[in-house]
């Protein structure tokens, strides 16, 4: 009984760790950037949350803007957010060996991907027909023909932002960021943590699918962590007069 209780407590502690990621303390001589992504309503926004039969993940709220009500929207969750700190030149550190994009009946597994130049991109076809998946950056392109149930790979050498499309299914669309920066994160909407940054000026770029991109300028000092909170929202778009 006591063991069971201990195990339960241990598991609860583990769950606690998983929900609140902890980061190492900054070391003297280098700094850190923590980017937190906020998909929830901002300060000053009031009103009840509301969802309709199509509403997969939105909350609409009303705020007072310039003396009148203006409805605003915030996402609850957004996946495939890409965060890039572009000044940091690429080194051999931190390179992912491969990046995978799966195509099944629902579509692409990811709407945004990020990787370093020269990384292997694998497209896995879980449909029962052959697919040709293409990427075009405006200057460079790749093309992969993937048999049903199989996968195909290519190395994308040139940095750039590639629009990914499919010959057989025009509804498939994605974006591949190939960045020469060694600091990037493309995992989730939980945020991004960059450690061991040489002190200096940095730019943080945040790209979320279907949202305006966000750029922040900041100074990193030795032994310190800079936290940047980015709202994933359409709130900051210019508003139409009505």
């Amino acid at each position: 009984m006591r063991w069971a209780l201990t195990t339960l407590l241990f598991m609860a502690a583990l769950a606690g760790c998983a929900s609140a990621p902890s980061y190492p303390d900054p070391q003297p001589g280098s700094g850190q950037i923590l980017v937190t992504l906020n998909g929830q309503a901002r300060e000053g926004v009031k009103g009840p949350a509301r969802e309709d039969e199509h509403g997969e993940y939105s909350i609409t709220r009303t705020s007072v803007e310039k003396g009148r009500d203006f409805e605003r929207v915030n996402y609850k969750a957004i996946s495939d957010v890409v965060v890039i700190v572009p000044e940091a030149a690429m080194t051999t550190r931190g390179l992912a060996s491969s990046v995978e994009l799966v195509v099944d009946e629902a579509g692409f597994s990811r709407s945004q991907l990020v990787m370093s130049p020269g990384t292997e991109l694998t497209v896995r076809n879980r449909r029962d027909t052959a697919l040709t998946v293409l990427g075009f950056s405006g200057a460079d392109f790749f093309e992969l023909t993937v048999k049903p149930g199989a996968s195909a790979s290519t190395r994308v050498a040139a940095a750039g932002t590639y629009e990914i499309a499919c010959d057989e299914d025009e509804s498939l669309a994605g974006t591949l960021f190939v960045t020469g920066s060694m600091y990037w994160s493309g995992t989730s909407d939980e945020g991004a943590f960059f450690d061991a940054l040489p002190p200096g000026e940095y730019t943080v770029e945040v790209y979320a699918p279907r949202l305006p991109s966000s750029t922040r300028r900041l100074t990193v000092s030795g032994g310190k962590r800079q936290t940047v909170a980015v709202d994933l929202t359409v709130n900051d778009l210019p508003k139409a007069r009505r």
Binding site: P86, M90, G160, T179, G180, Y207, T215
Partner: peptide
């Protein structure tokens, strides 16, 4: 978008 000095290779923004 990014009028900053850069060190080494860099990516093209979205």
């Amino acid at each position: 978008l990014l009028l900053v000095s850069v060190r080494g290779e860099r990516h093209i923004p979205a």
